[in-house]
Design a protein around this nucleic acid. Structure first.
Length: 123
DNA sequence: GTTTTGACAGTAT
DNA sequence: AATACTGCCAAAA
């Protein structure tokens, strides 16, 4: 049967993993994006990308997380096009100078968040 | 307690 | 290259 698409809850359990994910997402600098897998890996679970997605769905609103800076490993927005969330996220990123290719994808080599942020002489 | 779902990723075929 | 399968996390039914 069909279940509700989303169940935002501000009343979640807050495990270590959850806390770390929230903390990390908040640390994503403006103008950069991170992938679910990267967040998961930084939180200590390299294969918990799904969990990250769930946590964002649960905590993005109540915790005011910049969930828009989190995209999938292909550099694309995970929502289906024509959804309000998709448009919202794309607009948010473009506003931060994040370029979208004709493919509606982001070049992670340019805009991907690197914790050590050591890029050639431009940064 | 088990099953299903959800904004995923990596590997295998 | 494109699909399928598996791994992992947390919450609801």
């Amino acid at each position: 049967m069909i279940q509700p698409l989303s169940r935002p809850q501000s009343d979640i359990k807050m495990t270590d993993f959850t806390k770390q994910v929230i903390t990390l997402v908040k640390k994503i600098p403006k103008g950069k994006v991170a992938t679910y897998g990267q967040i998961a890996a930084l939180a200590g679970k390299s294969h918990a990308a799904r969990g990250v997605g769930w946590i964002l769905n649960s905590c993005a609103k109540p915790y005011k997380l910049p969930w828009q800076r989190v995209i999938n490993s292909k550099g694309k927005i995970s929502f289906h096009k024509s959804t309000a969330e998709y448009r919202n996220q794309k607009r948010f990123l473009q506003k931060e100078r994040v370029k979208f290719t004709a493919d509606d994808s982001v070049d992670l080599s340019q805009f991907g968040w690197k914790k050590k942020a050591r890029l050639p002489s431009g940064w």
